[in-house]
Computed example of a mutant assay.
Amino acid sequence: PEDYSGYVDREKLLAEENLPKAVLFGVLACIAGAVAWALISISTGYQMGYMAIGVGFLVGFAMRQGKGIRPIFGIIGAALALISCVMGDFFSIVGLVAKEYEVSFMDVLFDASYSEVMSVVIENMASMTIVFYGIALYEGYKLSFSAQKAPEGGKI
């Protein structure tokens, strides 16, 4: 009903959307998630596929800052979550190699054969990690939308 205090029409929600802000926050969360994944993996010495779940949450909630209700927000959130997972995996492998051979991270990053590192990333994805990547994609999509309060029994 129109007089319900929580009633918000679709046009007002669309007017409040801010895709550039959502993308900015999403990209920052994507980078932060990848770095956190790498730091945790390097410090523990283990590649942890379930880090993808946290990355998906992080990116999804960051994208929510744009107050989006259109599918593009979820699509970008899912893509950024996947990119963050792959980057986190990539940086973890580089860091673990650097730690193993006692060289700097930057030396390995700039001198490594990227095809070999990516083959290890793909090998990781072929294991159970792909399940966690899928969860991250889902979270990146689903959590990217603005939280809305709908009137009871009604739809926005």
Rank of each mutant, 00 (worst) to 15 (best):
I122S: 09
L96I: 07
V55D: 01
G66L: 00
F132I: 02
A52G: 02
K67N: 09
D107R: 12
S84A: 15
I122L: 13
G88V: 00
K142Q: 12
A81Y: 03
M106R: 08
V86H: 05
V103K: 09
C85V: 13
G56S: 08
E100K: 14
V86M: 11
L80Y: 05
G95W: 02
F105W: 06
S104N: 12
E123N: 14
L82H: 10
F132N: 06
F110N: 12
I83S: 13
M106W: 15
D111P: 06
D111L: 08
A98H: 03
E100L: 11
G49M: 01
S43F: 06
V117E: 09
A136W: 02
F105G: 05
G77P: 03
G74C: 03
Q65I: 02
Y138H: 10
D89C: 13
W37F: 15
V108H: 09
F110P: 09
Y138W: 15
G49L: 02
F105P: 07
A62D: 06
E116C: 07
S104G: 15
I75W: 12
S127W: 11
D89H: 12
R64Q: 15
G134C: 02
I42F: 01
I135Q: 02
S84T: 06
C85T: 04
M118E: 10
V117F: 10
V120C: 07
L96H: 04
M63D: 08
G54E: 04
V103C: 02
V120A: 11
K142N: 15
V117R: 07
D89I: 13
V35S: 01
Y141D: 05
I76Q: 08
E123F: 14
I72N: 10
S127P: 11
A62Y: 03
V55I: 15
E116P: 07
G68E: 05
M87Q: 10
F57K: 00
G140D: 02
I135K: 03
V59Q: 05
R70M: 00
A126M: 14
F73Y: 15
G140W: 02
V97C: 04
V35T: 06
G45E: 04
L58R: 01
G49S: 05
V120H: 11
K99Q: 11
I122E: 11
M87W: 14
L39E: 14
G49T: 00
L80F: 07
I40T: 12
Y101C: 07
